[in-house]
Each structure stands twice: as C-alpha cells, then as structure tokens.
Design a protein around this nucleic acid. Structure first.
Length: 228
DNA sequence: GCGACAG
DNA sequence: ATCTTGTCGC
C-alpha cells in the first residue's frame, strides 16, 4: 500500500486553497461498486498535544464492528489551524498512519467535513481522492451551511444547505445529544453515507470507527496501547 | 467593519 | 484540539 503524492504539503495557506480548488473536481458522489460488499470499515481521527499531531486509523470488521487493526503516527505540527484548511494540518500524519495498516479498509469514516466545506473539499473528501477510496465526513460541529434542528430521536436528520445547494445532513446518532454533520467524502452518495454511519452506531454519539479512532489518537484505546 | 469559523 | 472532576439529567 504505497501512496502517490498528488501535491506538496509544504505550502502556504494561499497555496493550500489553490490546491483545494484544483482537486475539488475529482470528488465523485456516486456509490462505488465496492460498497456493495464492505468487509472492513475504518475510523480516522487526529489529536493535538504539545505541538504534536497524533493520527489514528482503526479498522473494524463489518458488520460485526470488531476491531481488527490499528495504526498511529505522531509528528510535529507543520501547519497552523485555519478554518477550511484542516487537511493541511492533519492529513500528512493520517497518510503516514495509513501506510502502516495491515488490513486495507473498504470504507473510511473521517472526523471532519467531506464536501460540506467552503470549496467542497474538506478532509474526508481530500483523503478519499488521494486514496481513491470511499470516505464519509463525520464532523462533530458545523463549518458552513444552514439547517433545521433534527428531531431528538436517534436516526432523525435534516438537510444541510449552502444556499440552495445540498451539501450534507445533520444526523442525530443518539437521542438527546448534539447531532453529527455528515457529508459525502468520496465515491459514495449521501443517503448511503447516512445508512453506513447509523449502521456503525453502538449507543454512543460517535459511530464506532470514529469513536475508537478518537480513543486511539488520545492514547486511551486498550488495543493500541500495547503497540507503544 | 463585524461575526463565524471542521479540529 | 487542549486545559480538567465532579455532577446534573434522561
């Protein structure tokens, strides 16, 4: 599993925006044929501490959601946090962690936006295009867009719009908790993305893939701790 | 100019 | 994201 870098990561914020404008047209919002037979779903998350970013990718068996692989990568922060440019701060470490995986996932749930982004190229979309793999953006808060509040029952959702353009959905993954902002990352359709996210929820606000990746990035996941 | 702003 | 324990509510 080696990766080809389509562009440099050593860029300025202005260059980063240009890269997003240049690659946004590579995003595909149609279900990949591979989605019909998913065996492994991954969760991606990154933690930040003491000028160091720690990316974690967990791979779960699907649909049992049993943890089967974990990979992490810690390195120095090399880009400032700028709303809309989160990818340039987190993606390098994510790609390094990805190369350490022993099991290649068929679908990835990413902690961040997909196309619900100013230039329709958030972290999940960017990662999906670079890996040529289906991805779903599962953000815990809004970056852009307007929406009605979804009903409090788990499974309810409302559309997320940027003007009159549908860019995602606001999904209640658990009753009486803040909803998640779901959007297409790559090679998938929004309805399908919502189905998979709900399918991966096990009673917590965050779906298992993202929830375990979060614990792993924070060094709290039992299985990953043994790797240190 | 003012407010908003993934993690 | 991170700094941080107990505590109120479904």
């Amino acid at each position: 599993m080696s990766l080809r870098s389509l562009h440099s990561w050593n860029v300025t914020p202005t260059e980063a925006r240009e890269i997003q404008e240049r690659f946004r047209n590579r995003v595909r919002q149609k279900n990949a044929a591979s989605l019909r037979r998913i065996r492994h779903v991954a969760g991606v998350d990154v933690s930040l501490k003491a000028a160091q970013v720690t990316a974690a990718i967990v791979v779960l068996d699907y649909p049992t959601l049993e943890l089967v692989d974990v990979a992490t990568q810690r390195q120095k922060v090399s880009f400032p946090y700028v709303p809309g440019l989160l990818t340039f701060r987190e993606c390098p470490a994510i790609l390094a962690a990805y190369e350490k995986l022993q099991i290649e996932p068929d679908l990835m749930l990413v902690d961040g936006q997909g196309i619900a982004h100013p230039r329709r190229f958030g972290l999940a979309a960017h990662l999906g295009v670079l890996l040529g793999k289906p991805t779903i953006g599962c953000a815990k808060s809004r970056l852009i867009g307007t929406h009605d509040e979804p009903h409090e029952q788990a499974g309810c959702y409302t559309d997320l719009f940027d003007g009159n353009e549908l860019i995602g959905a606001v999904l209640r993954t658990r009753a009486n908790v803040k909803p998640l902002y779901i959007s297409v990352g790559h090679n998938i359709e929004l309805p399908t993305a919502l189905d998979f996210v709900l399918d991966c929820c096990q009673g917590y606000r965050l779906p298992e893939p993202t929830r375990l990746a979060h614990q792993s990035a924070g060094g709290l996941l039992r299985s990953s701790r043994a790797r240190y």
